[in-house]
């Protein structure tokens, strides 16, 4: 399955390991949450980056102490209409501070991209024709967002304030939309 980032198609350097496959001594490997839990110490002791693949029913909270040790978290869409992984993504990015690659796998279609990008996904496995072009345009498809999410965009309600709130992860809005003054608003 081709792997996309916003820059275009990229090589997938990760080895996806089934739970009964032997872990290679080095190189990036992607393991299930079950395996991660069972063999955490051994996995961390080996050379090479570790990724964890979660089912959309897995509790992301179980990775809470480990997000800085992981280079990849893969979240699965068994059907494109099953949206649980959007919540998992936001929790990983927003609440748990995960900064590595966040990959969408399974049924990943271009029309989901604006939502996925806003929830913090930055890598996508898809075989849909036209996916790369759609991804390149997905972040700018909507110039306006109404909610804070995990993409650092300023919600419209804050752009409308006479003294817009500027927080660390929110860049200033479009030109002329915000003053450089930093105001705290009831945070």
């Amino acid at each position: 399955m081709p792997l996309f980032r916003e820059t275009g198609v990229v090589d997938d350097v990760w080895t996806k390991l089934a739970d009964d496959q032997t872990v290679p001594a080095d190189g990036p490997v992607l393991v299930s949450l079950t395996r991660w839990r069972g063999a955490r110490a051994a996995l961390l002791a080996r050379r090479g980056p570790i990724g964890v693949a979660l089912a959309n029913s897995d509790a992301v909270e179980s990775l809470a102490g480990d997000v800085s040790r992981l280079d990849l978290v893969a979240l699965h869409f068994p059907k494109f209409s099953d949206g649980r992984a959007y919540s998992q993504a936001r929790l990983l990015r927003g609440r748990m501070g995960y900064g590595g690659e966040l990959r969408a796998t399974g049924s990943v279609l271009r029309d989901q991209l604006p939502f996925m990008l806003r929830c913090g996904f930055d890598a996508f496995e898809s075989d849909q024709p036209g996916f790369a072009d759609a991804l390149a345009g997905a972040r700018t498809l909507f110039s306006v967002v109404y909610q804070p999410a995990e993409d650092g965009r300023t919600p419209v309600s804050f752009l409308r304030l006479s003294s817009p709130v500027i927080r660390g992860r929110w860049p200033a809005g479009p030109e002329g939309e915000s003053s450089s003054e930093v105001t705290n608003y009831n945070y």
Binding site: G83, F115, R118, F142
Partner: peptide, 13 residues
């Protein structure tokens, strides 16, 4: 209405 419009997390409930 505004908050729920194209909410990225809640578009596949």
């Amino acid at each position: 209405r505004q908050w729920s419009t194209l909410h990225p997390e809640f578009s596949f409930l």
